[in-house]
């Protein structure tokens, strides 16, 4: 509970809080449950933490704007109620030029201020733009019904419904779909983006603390939609390298046979069981070695007709 309040008050991890809206908002959180690692309100990277900052900024700004209405409506209702003969009554008063300036001017000024935010920082940190000058780690994401395939093209390995990324290094995701349109989303890290067949979208994210975070698809795509979640593990560099090395040793290879199983409509768990039938109840999500070169481009080529090896 205290953790949650600290998160909501913006006191978490040293960022000085925007206390007022945070308190208003945290007042709404009446539970003692831990909401860590599933939301941008408890950010694990610079994008999410900026988004939280913008959220609080908008919350304060807009609260100030709507305050006159929240106060004015009950006030007018009470003061000018039909029974109150002492109140002024001007049935034919319907215009005052100075008020016109206020009525049009105040919303206009507020919109101009917020436009600066949209055009400035929000545009700078939109999903397709890189965050740092250092070379990012590339991850190719393939959306399947109802699971995600993560390919590490530089290492030639892949994993199903389990994304592992190094701490402190920018990651560039290239996303496509080999089925319906889906929306790739890791709330604790930042923006979501659609994955669509025959097209590539880009997303830059950076994780600055280790931990396990929630990843999900937010675009309804059929009967396994609610189960289409994946774990995101952020690890220090060495641990990440060890994970990649282990993937290379995986007995499963991402060949045509494997991919045929993955393409079938099934949840990640069901696909994992189909791939490793003898590993009991709770299987860890499988890793794959031997990812063919141009695997990602091959999937695109299914739909665009561009050259590349067609998997599956």
């Amino acid at each position: 509970m205290t953790r949650l309040i600290r998160i909501l008050a913006g006191l978490n991890r040293g960022r000085p809080g925007l206390l007022l809206p945070a308190l208003v908002f945290s007042g709404l959180f009446l539970t003692g449950c831990d909401a860590g690692n599933i939301t941008f309100l408890d950010p694990a990277g610079p994008i999410a933490s900026m988004q939280r900052h913008w959220f609080f900024l908008l919350l304060i700004g807009l609260f100030v704007v709507i305050l006159p209405v929240l106060i004015g409506v009950p006030l007018c209702l009470w003061r000018y109620r039909a029974g109150n003969r002492k109140a002024d009554f001007r049935p034919n008063w319907d215009f005052a030029l100075p008020l016109e300036f206020l009525v049009w001017g105040v919303p206009a000024v507020v919109v101009v201020l917020f436009s600066l935010l949209v055009w400035g920082p929000e545009r700078r940190f939109s999903p397709e733009r890189s965050l740092t000058d250092a070379p990012p780690l590339a991850v190719d994401v393939v959306a399947l019904n109802w699971k995600w395939l993560f390919v590490y093209p530089d290492s030639g390995v892949a994993s199903l419904d389990h994304l592992v990324i190094p701490q402190g290094r920018e990651v560039v995701f290239r996303l496509t779909s080999d089925s319906t349109m889906q929306s790739f989303f890791i709330p604790s890290l930042g923006s979501q983006i659609y994955a669509m067949a025959g097209m590539v979208t880009h997303l830059h994210l950076l994780a600055d603390r280790p931990g396990r975070f929630l990843g999900e698809n937010t675009q309804f795509n059929g009967m396994g939609f609610q189960n289409q979640k994946f774990a995101v593990d952020v690890m220090p560099g060495e641990a990440f390298d060890r994970w990649i090395a282990r993937a290379h040793e995986s007995p499963l290879r991402l060949d045509a046979g494997t991919y045929r199983i993955l393409r079938k409509e099934s949840t990640g768990d069901e696909a994992a069981k189909a791939l490793k039938p003898d590993s009991g109840q709770k299987t860890a999500m499988p890793q794959f070695a031997g990812v063919p070169e141009h695997f990602f481009r091959g999937i695109l080529a299914r739909y665009t007709g561009a050259p590349g090896r067609i998997p599956g």
Partner: peptide
């Protein structure tokens, strides 16, 4: 009037792409 300005405020929030990336869908 009271509730609509609240909804309008969240609408302006959603109009901010930077925030919308978080709460879209």
């Amino acid at each position: 009037m009271i509730l609509f300005v609240v909804g309008g405020a969240t609408g302006v929030m959603l109009a901010n792409p930077g925030f919308d990336y978080q709460v879209h869908n």
